[in-house]
Structures are given as C-alpha cells and as structure tokens.
C-alpha cells in the first residue's frame, strides 16, 4: 500500500504576515495521495485548503507567506524549500495544476495552441512540428471539438467550459503524475461541471493520474473522490475514504456540513444549519477550532486542541477519546476497518 504513495505531506504549517498580524492559514496538515486516486480536500472559504496545495507547488508568495513547519515529498523527493529553478522543473512537468478561474490562468495574448505548445517545447524538448501534433491530440483528448481550428484561437474566444478544458489540456501536456484541481468547476454551470468532472475521471482512468481536488461542494466530492480530507480553520478535522466521510462521519463539522445540504430525499427533511461563522485565524481559538459552533462541545474542547484520533479514518475530536462520554460519533471511527485503538 505504501509503495503507491505519490505525494506525502507531513505536518505542514503556513502563516501569512498581514496588516493585522500573522494569520495561521494552515496548521499541522498531513495527508497521503495514492497513485491513480483522487483525494478531495473539502472545506469552506478561508479554511486553508487552497493555501495547502498552493504551498506544494510554490505558488504562495513569500513573504507574506511563510512555511513554519512540515515537509512534502513527491515520490520521496522533498518539495518544500526548493529554489524557483528547481520548482519550475517539477511544476507543470510532474505536478499539473488547474484553477477556478481559467481565464486569468491563461495568457490572453497567446493562442491556446501556442500556450500548450510552449510548455511542450520547454518541458518535453519537442520539435515544433511534434508539439503541434501533440497539441491537437491533447485538445481532442479533452474533447474540444475542431482542435485544428480551436488551437489558433485566443482565450477570449473560448467559453468558460471550453477554457477549463484547454486549461486541463495544458496541465496534462507534460504527463504529470499529480494533477491539482483547485475548485475547477466552481465558476461553471452544473451541466458544464458534469462534463468537466466526467472528463477528469476519464483522464484519470486513461493516464493513471493522481488528483488532488479542492472543492467546497460535497456533491462533487461524492462524485469524484476516493479519499477525502475535511478542513476547518486551517486544520484537517477528518479524513478517510469517501464512504467513511459520508456514511460514517466522525466529526461534528462533517456531520454539520452534510446536514446543511438539502439531500435528494423525497420528504423535505429539516435543513440543519451550523450556527455561527468560522473563527478568525488572526487568533485561532485555544482549544478545538470548531468548539464555538459545535453542538457536542465539552469543557475540554474550549482549552485543549484535540489530536487526530484513528488510523485509516481519522477525526480531530475529543469525543473519540477513550474517556469521553459515549456518543454515537464514537462508533464511527471504530466501525471503520483497519482502525486500531488509539
């Protein structure tokens, strides 16, 4: 199992210096990405999910950003603290990235074809003619109709969905092992989203891509993910397989998120809100980041930050402590196979 780990992140911590003081955007984040699988990092805006992956590919400007702890290894090679030259060598080539806003990620003054060809020329050392053939092949792989004509067009001539496809073609041009998709469908309509998700899935199958999918949409997570990490206030509060997260939720926040979405049940189940708003990361609360909004809060939660309980399915909640009062949530971690006692 461990041999197919592509990317491993340990205890990553990132903070930002701002006008108001330093913001601890990412605190003690660890996860593993297995070959050919999709890891979804899910959370609300400001929870640190984008900062986490942008740190991996060196997209966080430093300063104001600062990595205070942790390591990230791509097939055993350390990624953090690389020079920009070294970064350029693996970014794009070994890790591809697509963004929410494809329009601003592409150069508006170059044709789509030229932008993809440029990557091929630089990273793959292809000849111009070979690159051109490859561009056409890539564009048809991402199901852009009439690739010979479309490759001569500029980004503004593309619709949002087509632009995201072009962005995907660009990001997989150098056959990376890892594709980071940062909210790739948030700006798209639901029918276009379905197309893009289908496309990502088929690319994963045909190329054995490992995908890190950043999203806030539990529907997209359920559709795409094998593994899921739920982030809240800069920390991973629960992680496990997609079934663990949806059917054996072990953290009150995950439960809350699920209850806050109207499901496809015939009767209108009561919609359950999570009261309050996420904490201010200028001064993260002393105890558990979620305690102020948690329905099961205990005295302990207000003063002591909980560790991650569990092994394959982990949750950062004191309810899983051996001495905690019996609570339905506790059964969830134990129910997961492969979880020893902690």
């Amino acid at each position: 199992m461990s041999s197919d780990i592509i990317l491993e992140v340990d205890n990553l911590a990132v903070e930002f210096a701002t006008f108001g003081g330093s913001v601890q955007a990412v605190r003690d984040v660890s996860f593993k990405l297995h070959k050919g699988t999709t890891l979804a990092i899910v959370g609300e805006s400001g929870c640190g999910k984008s900062v986490t992956v942008q740190t991996l590919v060196g997209l966080i400007p430093m300063p104001p950003g600062r990595i205070t702890a942790g390591s990230a290894r791509l097939r055993g090679e350390e990624l953090l603290g690389l020079s920009s030259d070294q970064l350029n060598r693996y970014r794009g080539k070994r890790i591809g990235m697509i963004f929410q806003d494809a329009m601003s990620a592409l150069n508006p003054t170059m044709t789509i074809g030229d932008q993809i060809a440029e990557t091929l020329l630089v990273h793959m050392g292809m000849s111009a003619a070979a690159a051109r053939q490859e561009v056409i092949a890539l564009l048809s792989q991402v199901q852009i109709p009439e690739p010979e004509r479309r490759m001569r067009q500029y980004p503004f001539e593309f619709s949002g969905g087509m632009l995201q496809r072009a962005m995907i073609a660009l990001s997989i041009a150098c056959q990376p092992e890892v594709l980071i998709a940062d909210e790739p469908t948030t700006a798209l309509d639901v029918t276009i989203q379905a197309q893009i998700l289908q496309l990502l899935e088929s690319l994963q199958r045909s190329r054995g891509l490992s995908i890190i999918l950043i999203t806030h949409d539990l529907g997209v997570v359920a559709r795409m993910a094998h593994e899921v990490a739920v982030m809240y206030a800069g920390q991973i509060v629960e992680q496990g397989s997609v079934d663990d997260i949806f059917y054996r939720s072990a953290h009150p926040y995950t439960l809350g998120l699920k209850a806050a979405m109207p499901g496809k049940t015939a009767q209108k189940a009561e919609l359950h809100e999570i009261p309050g708003s996420p904490p201010d990361l200028f001064a993260p609360p002393a105890g558990c980041g979620f305690h102020a909004r948690c329905p099961h809060v205990m005295q302990l939660c207000e003063s002591k930050a909980p560790p991650l309980f569990g092994a394959a399915h982990q949750a950062r909640c004191w309810l899983h402590h051996a001495q905690a009062p019996t609570h339905p949530l506790r059964q969830q971690l134990l129910a997961t196979t492969g979880n020893g006692s902690c």
Partner: peptide, 14 residues
C-alpha cells in the same frame, strides 16, 4: 502524538 491526557471532569458538556 498527543501527550495531553484529559481528566474525567473535563469531558463535562457545555
């Protein structure tokens, strides 16, 4: 990894 062992009374709900 966690060295803190909470006392029983700390599990009182709020």
């Amino acid at each position: 990894m966690n060295s803190y062992e909470p006392a029983a009374h700390e599990f009182a709900s709020v």
